[in-house]
Amino acid sequence: MSAVEQALPQFSSKRLEEIKTLIARYPHSRSALLPVLHMAQEDFEYLSMDVQKLVAKTLGLHLMAVREVVTFYTMFREKPCGTYLLEVCTNAGCMLNGADELVRHLCDTLEIKVGGTTPDGLFTVTEVECAGACAGAPVVQINNAYHEKVDAAHMDVFITEARGQGGKK
């Protein structure tokens, strides 16, 4: 094994077991690619090129096959983001119920642009497409948990609390 390969990140043995069970659920191991990328993102926070290589190796795929998938799906990140990822739905239902104002409020409060991360690495704000929860518009997903009928005051409380916790999720 060359030095370069050794430097690749590794899955824990527990993860590898999980991946093995997962592969068995499908006719071909390639189907496990999305779930394994979700796992890898959980383990390594984002999908660096090295992590993508690890996934390719684990599933016996060409790195290109992994790259194609990572870049196609919006939930896969190739760069780190803040501890709190605030994803505001701004599609129709939410837009009609104040999502744009909410985004503006978040950006002003945190002094960042959409897509940006606060200098302390705590918050990233992005706009996302319809979250499938329009009755609760506007909707904000915070690290994958849905928060519905959110308003500016709501978010202010959340931000203060999160800052108080000093970056722990």
């Binding site: 659920r25 499908y26 999305l34 979700h38 196609f72 799906y73 919006t74 497409e129």
Partner: peptide
């Protein structure tokens, strides 16, 4: 019959 939940990753 086996039933498996498979998560997408953000693509309408």
């Amino acid at each position: 019959m086996d039933l498996t939940v498979h998560r997408g990753a953000g693509a309408y």
